[in-house]
Design a protein around this nucleic acid. Structure first.
Lengths: 165, 165
DNA sequence: CTTGAAAAGAGCGGCCA
DNA sequence: TGGCCGCTCTTTTCAAG
């Protein structure tokens, strides 16, 4: 995982339609070694998958909601089933177990308020929750899947972090 | 935008490596019309982009933080600059302007707590904020880019349940 | 929309440095 | 490792039904 790999990843997480030849060109490699690196990154699971990112608004999915959940005290088994149930709901794009005052955090995407209400009822029906707070997004300022990779070419924010490896 | 288009989108937002022949096969179309549909969906912006999704943990980015921000009262111009600044930070993967008690909501991905502290200082340095609450993720239960498309083929979750419709 | 097919391009793999 | 050079497959385009 050297700096060339990071460059390749930075390119691919922005635009996965780039040809291997183009990527190789940009990172200063010819096709073959570039291709081999990408294969390895995929085999290692660093590249998890390649997907098409759709425009939610154009598909009538204009409402994003952040949901904070506090569970009542439950057995581990219970929580596991809860997690499974919620994760299976397609409206839930992200779902994290949290530290602190909130137990779970969800990012939900639905068509409109009515659709959210339907989802909400479905959610609270899965099990008794101590507290569910819904926060509604008015405007999407930014939304990306690109991770903050340490850009190796020129500007390096803080070099020392790599020492842990 | 008929049900075949939705099937195509459902496939592509899950796996963008599928060949056109395969997609056509699965939606009951031959290559040519299937290809034309995908071209149209891209031209219309329904398909926004194709990206590689990377594994944050394998890249040493193991900490996800949800940040709630309440701004003090500011001019519209001021807020615009704030939005611009925050959006330009690569650690910020998602950034929404919210309705209600919280003004902005961020999803931030960093390496560790120390890196988050660095980010946090950078964030509050941009402008005086009334309140910044950081919530830390302990476990990622689910994270997808796939939107909840109304699956038209067969199983439709619960169409009639919402009697209010 | 379908079949068929051809040209262009990209992925893939072997072999050499 | 990286680089050159093919082979194969997909994508892309076009014709005709």
């Amino acid at each position: 995982m050297d700096s060339i790999d990071l460059k390749i990843l930075a390119l691919l997480q922005t635009d996965a339609t780039l040809s291997i030849a183009t990527i190789g060109e940009r990172v200063g490699l010819s096709q073959t070694p570039c291709w081999k690196r990408i294969q390895r990154l995929e085999a290692d699971g660093v590249i998890d998958r390649r997907v098409a990112v759709l425009d939610p608004v154009k598909l009538g999915l204009g409402l994003t909601v952040f949901v904070s959940i506090e569970t009542a005290d439950h057995s581990e088994d219970w929580l596991e089933r809860f997690a499974e149930t919620v994760a299976s709901m397609p409206e839930v794009l992200e779902f994290y177990r949290m530290a602190g005052d909130v137990d779970y955090m969800l990012r939900v995407v639905v068509a409109d308020m009515q659709a959210y209400d339907t989802f909400y009822k479905k959610l609270i029906a899965t099990l008794p929750l101590k507290n569910v707070t819904s926060r509604f997004a008015m405007e999407k300022v930014k939304s990306t899947t690109a991770l903050p990779l340490p850009l190796p070419p020129s500007a390096r924010p803080s070099l020392r972090l790599a020492a842990g490896a």
